[in-house]
Write a protein that binds this DNA or RNA. Structure first.
Lengths: 145, 145
DNA sequence: ATGTTAAATGCAAATAAATATCATTTGATA
DNA sequence: TATCAAATGATATTTATTTGCATTTAACAT
């Protein structure tokens, strides 16, 4: 039974990339913050605790690499920076975001009604669909008052 | 029976904003390019044909204003800039995007199965949902070959 | 173990999109 | 037609991200 970390190592090896300390440490930050939607700057700050010598450019490069390897995926909450979250292979496809239009808070919903929808869209269009992304906009509990 | 343009004028007046030539011309660009997803730079280039004196900052400011007035809405195709499309009041809510992961082409789907989904999500979470946004990722007809 | 080599890093400089500043102009109303 | 807040254009600035390059390091072969 392969852990998430084993998968990272295998994916890196398969593509001829090296498993560096920096990549380990960045990976750990995502493991330790699975409920978060981290920006490059936030990752940088957290990584510096364990590995102060790291450069911001390395963080950016690593995030790109991890995204390419499907280790993390990119989110967009329109707040001026990219955000990323760990791909645990269980959150994918039925894990979407609720964005509060008042305070900007983002929460999660676990729901999967979209498989039917994908089929329908594939029939109507000529696209071969492999993924979807759903965002809901509204007002969170606190901001409804 | 009120035209889209009348609505723009009313909305501006209501909030104490002025109907300037620049705003008219930018609005016309959206009317003339309803199928497009325009970036600020693209709007700027098109506007300059009719109104060469316009400044890029005015385009940015106008796009923000139009978005605030729900005259246009913002899209994100992760290509390094904001993109906008006209809100015709008919495309809203059942108009979503198919993004080709190979060539980046974006097409439209008209579909609305999400009302049920919104209800379900509202029950499960404490969010009051007012809008949703769906993107499908896959391969377009040309790139499947 | 050690040497070799391509890949990765850190730093600093460079880009690019978007925003802010401010003197000047303009649209709406009296 | 005069008034005045709002809007504009030009330019400078900010902020996120990327790039160039000399140096370091992980992976692999010997």
């Amino acid at each position: 039974m392969e852990s998430l970390f084993d998968m990272l190592r295998d994916k890196l090896k398969e593509k001829g990339y090296k498993l560096t300390t920096q990549r380990r440490v960045i990976y750990d930050v995502f493991i330790d913050n699975q409920e978060s939607h981290l920006s490059p700057e936030e990752v940088y700050d957290m990584v510096k605790d364990k590995y102060p010598e790291i450069g911001l450019a390395t963080v950016y490069r690593t995030l790109q690499l991890f995204e390419e390897l499907d280790v993390i995926y990119k989110l967009n909450f329109d707040d001026g920076c990219n955000r990323y979250e760990l791909n645990t292979n269980t959150n994918h496809h039925q894990h979407h975001h609720l964005i509060c239009m008042e305070c900007g808070k983002v929460s999660e919903v676990e729901i999967d009604l979209l498989d039917k929808l994908e089929e329908k869209v594939e029939k109507e269009s000529k696209f071969k669909i492999v993924d979807h992304n759903v965002k809901f906009f509204g007002y969170c509990e606190d901001c409804q008052k």
